[in-house]
Amino acid sequence: MGDMPLVLLIFYTVFIGFMTLTPYQLDVSPAGPIGRLLQFFADHQVTSWLTYTLVEKLANVAMFVPFGFLLALQMGRRRWWVGWVAGAAFTCLIEGAQVTLLSPTRYGTISDLITNTLGAVIGAVLALVLMVLLPSRDEPDEVDRVVR
């Protein structure tokens, strides 16, 4: 895979930082695009269960899946778990910064810590499954290890 996971990880980490450590959140007012979409869901019985709180939690999980995935790929099969441990540490830093440095406009929560970490866990596990199913070309095949 080369350096591609590392390059993507760097860009994605910067993206997460931009999304979580800037003083202002995305437009979440009722008149904004997210608010209108959620109102559309609320107006229809089939999708009325899709609330702002649920969408926010799912977005927090989804945002950290690529982080855990890319970091686990970068670390390899033996250290895949670093993807979720680093995801937990990264979200602790983010939530801490939101509570202390960005408190007038951002809110750090335990819920975000849990959902972000869950996303990193899911991503790291998916990367492990991929690495097990599709072994790296750098690793010799079992047949090559047999002394003839």
Rank of each mutant, 00 (worst) to 15 (best):
Q74C: 07
L102A: 09
L9Q: 05
D43Q: 15
R36A: 11
P135K: 02
P135T: 02
I122V: 14
I110V: 15
P23A: 10
V14D: 10
D112G: 10
T100Y: 06
T105I: 01
L118S: 15
R77E: 11
W81S: 13
A97H: 04
P5T: 02
P23K: 09
Y107M: 11
F69L: 12
G32Q: 01
T13V: 06
Q25M: 12
W49I: 06
A86Y: 00
P66Q: 09
M1S: 11
Q74S: 11
I16A: 04
I94M: 12
P135C: 04
D3Q: 10
D3V: 07
L134S: 09
V125H: 05
L93M: 13
R79M: 05
Q74N: 13
V99I: 12
S29Q: 12
S111M: 05
S136Q: 11
L8C: 11
Y52F: 13
T51N: 02
H44L: 04
R79E: 01
M4R: 14
M19H: 03
S48M: 02
M19Q: 13
R148K: 10
L93V: 11
V65R: 14
H44R: 15
T47P: 14
F90V: 05
V125W: 10
V14P: 14
M75D: 01
A127M: 01
L134V: 07
L134W: 05
V147P: 00
I10Y: 05
G83K: 01
L73I: 02
R106H: 06
W84Y: 14
I94K: 15
A86M: 10
L50R: 03
